[in-house]
Design a binder for these strands. Sequence first.
DNA 1: CGAATATACGACTAATTTAGTCCTCGTTTA
DNA 2: TAAACGAGGACTAAATTAGTCGTATATTCG
Lengths: 145, 145
Amino acid sequence: MLKLSKRVEYALLSIQVMAKNPDTVVSAKDVADRFNISFTLVAKVLQQLVHAGVVRSYAGVRGGYALAKHAELVSIADVIEAIEGSGSRLVECQEEHDHACTAHTSCTIKEPLQVLHDRIVSTFASMSVAELAGPQLVQITGHVT
Amino acid sequence: MLKLSKRVEYALLSIQVMAKNPDTVVSAKDVADRFNISFTLVAKVLQQLVHAGVVRSYAGVRGGYALAKHAELVSIADVIEAIEGSGSRLVECQEEHDHACTAHTSCTIKEPLQVLHDRIVSTFASMSVAELAGPQLVQITGHVT
DNA sequence: CGAATATACGACTAATTTAGTCCTCGTTTA
DNA sequence: TAAACGAGGACTAAATTAGTCGTATATTCG
């Protein structure tokens, strides 16, 4: 009914590791080994997360990746958008290239589905990746809002 | 970020026509012509809807399809499930064939995402196909609840 | 009856998307 | 300067989705 791509899944797994280990950098190899998944794919996915500003990268020997913001500030929607791009709607107009689908009575379902789309996006936006990591030990240096 | 398949789209378009014309049967050809889409595909999709009990079919010369229930009683979730099946989760366990993914620490994101999945399903369930048809004229023979 | 117009359905091919690999380059650290 | 890392492009493979074809069956109507 609704499946996330492996790329998004790998992104979430990677981020989960980072969220659980806020004080260390995590390399693509770490993630790939830990979950027995393709190193190169994970590496690619992590690069997309860098582009989107979700994680920071550190090159070099003891390099790797770490979250660019607090886990609470990164939503699942952010991650999905980082990987899949922001351009996808629930229903795409089926002739937007030339004559924006005015030819046929088409796309009459587009408008009501937009409402649905927005609701779903906000559902994704309502969960932060911190929730993937589960309850964390309170940081001594941290603070409660 | 989240796209419905053409099959679901065609299903919704077909249902929309039926919801707008509750007193007539709509043939696959009607729908295909109206939206300039593949007749055989629409026919197939409609057959899936029949199997799922969403629409009723009438064979023969002046045959076609009509909603099996009131449009208000059919949700978008029903339609998606009729077409895509009910088996898909947001994140699938990546080794459920043999040794249910206990080998690696994998699937640690599955549980939190289940929550998200349920929310999204209920979002789809919250909208009926009647909303695709827009406000209808009140039927003389109808009644208000 | 029988021709025309529907649905029913399985097998098939084509197109698109997603997954995954490979190779080369730049960076950092010890 | 060598080893361990990220960056990124070009590519192949696999899986999914879209779409076709052929044939069988039901119904209406002249």
